[in-house]
């Protein structure tokens, strides 16, 4: 009955992968309009992407935003995760649930309130606003992740280091963080990828300095161009590369 397992698996894989496969094919189409079968192939849309300063600028801005958000979220998540593991006389599950609220509130609602807030503090429509907005919604995921990772560590190592006279800073950075270095990297990659693709907060607060997702959406709203597929394929390949590297790091933990 092997086929009985293959059929649903192949169907679901097709459903999941078909938009990406078609995106790759259309990105090499010579024609401006999407048709199947593709009449002739070329790399002209890739050249257009490279020569589009607005698009390249938005990609660089998103890269900068993503890296900043990843660093900030991981730092905050690690700090709160570490505190939660060691905290006494508090309901840890309740505090953890409170920490996750920003990640479960529909982003569009937060984005609207956040824009109003940034107007009041004078950072509306700036890079900083986008970075803060993304960090608020993605750092809770890092908190939950690090809480679980740090709670799995052997506390005796920390005690031993303390007994031997290590400073608290050294214990946190070398003993605790040192043991979960791989997880820190994986968490950074995940947060970076989430920030990279986030649309609604960026749409509200990024202003004239548009992120990649906002730029692509705007391109689709005006006149359609297969550039969108080319840029989608390029970013897809970058994601593939980054994820392959992070998978290599975490392979032993996730995949047997």
């Amino acid at each position: 009955m092997k086929w009985a397992n293959y059929i649903p698996l192949l169907f679901i894989l097709f459903l999941v992968l078909c938009p990406i496969l078609f995106m790759g094919v259309f990105s090499f189409s010579d024609n401006r309009f999407i048709t199947l079968p593709v009449a002739s192939y070329s790399t002209k849309w890739y050249n257009t992407v490279i020569n589009n300063p607005e698009l390249v600028g938005s990609l660089l801005l998103t890269l900068f935003t993503g890296i900043s958000v990843a660093i900030l979220s991981v730092t905050l998540g690690f700090m709160s995760g570490y505190w939660l593991v060691h905290a006494r006389s508090i309901n840890k599950q309740l505090v953890l649930a409170l920490f996750t609220i920003p990640a479960i509130v529909p982003f569009i609602l937060y984005a609207l309130g956040f824009l109003e807030f940034t107007r009041h503090i004078g950072i509306a429509r700036t890079k900083l606003a986008t970075i803060i907005g993304h960090t608020v919604i993605f750092s809770p995921l890092a908190t939950v992740y690090f809480y679980h990772q740090i709670s799995r560590l052997n506390p005796d190592l920390e005690h031993a280091a303390r007994e031997l006279g290590a400073s608290e800073l050294k214990i946190i950075t070398e003993i605790v963080a040192g043991q979960i270095l791989k997880n820190i990297f994986v968490c950074m990659v995940v947060v970076f990828a989430l920030s990279w693709d986030e649309y609604i907060i960026s749409w509200f607060v990024s202003g004239f300095q548009k992120t990649y997702a906002v730029q692509v959406r705007n391109m689709l709203e005006s006149t359609f161009s297969p550039e969108v597929f080319a840029v989608g394929t390029i970013t897809g390949l970058i994601s593939l590369l980054v994820l392959t590297v992070s998978f290599r790091f975490s392979r032993r933990e996730i995949v047997s």
Partner: peptide, 10 residues
């Protein structure tokens, strides 16, 4: 982790 907008457009 591949861009949602181009994927949805396809």
């Amino acid at each position: 982790f591949i861009g949602l907008i181009p994927r949805t457009f396809v």
